[in-house]
């Protein structure tokens, strides 16, 4: 779930949320977050991509076609990551790296990259493998 944030900056297409209290030694994570954010912006332009949620340790970026459903998308994203952690533990598969869920109408690709959590929502026709390959992980 998205934590309570100190300040929110809204752009035309994306919502940026940042925490006022930044922990120490986060420069590396910030750099990763920035790189991922840039990559996701490019992915967002691809045909069939409905949007994404990127959560770092101190900030989050949400860009969704249906802003009214941000909470529902965020809950699904969070649950997918929690459940995948439980399942990989059960079968001793180590840390989950990415999770792909195909629903009746849409599909979602979630990734854990360091402390950053990504969920990309897309139409069923979108090539999720190509999207996965575009994300540095």
């Amino acid at each position: 779930m998205v934590k309570k944030k100190g300040s929110i900056t809204e752009t035309a297409s994306a919502i940026m949320m940042e925490d006022d209290e930044e922990p120490e030694n986060t420069s590396q994570e910030d750099e990763t977050f920035t790189t991922l954010s840039e990559t996701l912006k490019e992915i967002r332009k691809l045909k069939g991509v409905q949007g994404y949620i990127l959560r770092g340790t101190t900030s989050a970026t949400i860009d969704l076609k249906e802003p009214g459903k941000i909470v529902e998308y965020a809950i699904l994203s969070s649950q997918a990551l929690d459940s995948s952690r439980e399942i990989t533990e059960l079968f001793n598969l180590g840390e989950p790296q990415h999770i792909f869920i195909q629903g009746k109408e849409l599909k979602t690709l979630s990734l854990l990259i360091g402390a950053n959590k990504i969920s990309i929502f897309m139409e069923k026709t979108a090539d999720h493998t190509a999207i996965l390959n575009r994300i540095p992980h």
Partner: peptide, 8 residues
């Protein structure tokens, strides 16, 4: 849900 794939 039609498919869930978890890559560990």
């Amino acid at each position: 849900i039609e498919t869930v794939t978890i890559q560990g």
